[in-house]
């Protein structure tokens, strides 16, 4: 299955700060295929959220290209993108359903808002029909539509967040930690709903999360991000069974319940994202297997089959690790 829908090419987002250039997203190339669910994982501060905001075109990239169906959207200024025809093809479900809903909007208006802004001219009945339909497919009880966010439970607000993201029938749904604020039981319902909607509405997901147990269940492929770079990307089974990058392996070993693998403790904090040395591997210094080479030459992302990783000493090619 290789039918690229969303392509990122050497995408970069640099923020100038008092002490130098902060490389939040640094040369990310990634492809989201049609119908695919791609997981994006990494520690906080690794640039996941900046990448999401660049993709949703809330901010402009510093360099690089974003293409949807081959059409470039990275060079449309964020200011203008809000009304651009391509805007409705990418929608975001934000992390905290409480903070991302306008407390002064009734639920109906929160869901209708994207449609009114981007759906072209619509009569009141058309808007209303679409809102009720969106509520129906996200299983949001229609009697809640006239209420305000504070009157809803966390799970119901999560449904509202999804309903308004799908009302324009986007091709790409960016899910930014969609269940991290929810209880385990509610999380199950929302994950199952998302799984179902992907099939019925034919959407592709970019699923940003730091809960690897969840990513394992809902994603086809996983990309691991570290300090602004993608350091590994592979089908989900491969990444869990046979991580190639030492960072990924440490991340997996830290999952609670991963009793079968010895915990790999990462000491220290990540390197600074401000003016990073271009020739040093970003993980150097924290990496349990770092060697002199890693400080002289930053490893590029290389492919072995469908499995790419940026490490000079890929674990999946080493016999002693495979044994």
């Amino acid at each position: 299955m290789s039918d690229p829908l969303l392509e990122l090419d050497a995408l970069q987002k640099i923020y100038p700060t008092g002490s130098g250039q902060l490389h939040a997203v640094d040369g990310v190339s990634l492809t989201l295929n049609r119908g695919e669910s791609l997981g994006l994982v990494g520690e906080s501060g690794c640039g996941k959220s900046t990448l999401v905001r660049v993709l949703a075109r809330l901010i402009d990239p510093s360099a690089g290209a974003i293409r949807i169906d081959g059409q470039s959207i990275g060079d449309i200024p964020a200011r203008r993108f809000g009304t651009h025809p391509q805007r409705k093809r990418i929608q975001v479900v934000f992390q905290d359903p409480t903070d991302s809903l306008n407390p002064q909007f009734r639920i109906f208006d929160s869901i209708a808002d994207p449609l009114r802004r981007l759906g072209g001219r619509k009569t009141r009945t058309e808007v209303s029909d679409a809102v009720y339909e969106a509520a129906r497919i996200t299983r949001l009880p229609p009697e809640l539509l006239m209420r305000y966010p504070h009157q809803l439970s966390g799970g119901q607000k999560a449904r509202v967040g999804i309903a308004r993201a799908i009302i324009l029938r986007p091709d790409v749904l960016i899910l930014d930690e969609p269940t991290s604020a929810l209880d385990v039981s509610v999380q199950v319902v929302i994950l199952q709903l998302l799984g179902e909607l992907r099939e019925t509405l034919g959407m592709s997901y970019l699923f940003v999360s730091h809960d690897l147990n969840v990513v394992k269940l809902v994603c086809d492929r996983v990309a691991v991000m570290y300090l602004g770079k993608i350091i590994e990307c592979a089908p989900v089974d491969q990444i869990f069974a046979r991580p190639a990058h030492p960072y990924t392996r440490a991340l997996l070993s830290a999952i609670p319940g991963a009793r079968d693998t010895a915990r790999i403790r990462l000491d220290g904090e990540p390197r600074s994202p401000i003016d990073p040395a271009p020739n040093v591997c970003r993980f150097y210094g924290r990496c349990p297997m770092g060697q002199d080479l890693c400080a002289q030459k930053a490893p590029p992302l290389t492919n072995i089959g469908a499995h790419s990783a940026a490490c000079h000493f890929r674990l999946d090619t080493r016999q002693e690790v495979l044994a």
């Binding site: 439970s153 385990v184 039981s185 509610v186 999380q187 199950v188 319902v189 994950l191 199952q192 799984g195 809960d211 147990n213 969840v214 394992k216 269940l217 809902v218 999952i255 609670p256 319940g257």
Partner: peptide, 23 residues
Amino acid sequence: GLLMKATPHGASNLSDLAAIPGS
């Protein structure tokens, strides 16, 4: 039992998980 069935760890498929009915 229901609490454990809702926990993602160890499940290999989304359909293995079950939400706790009711509230």
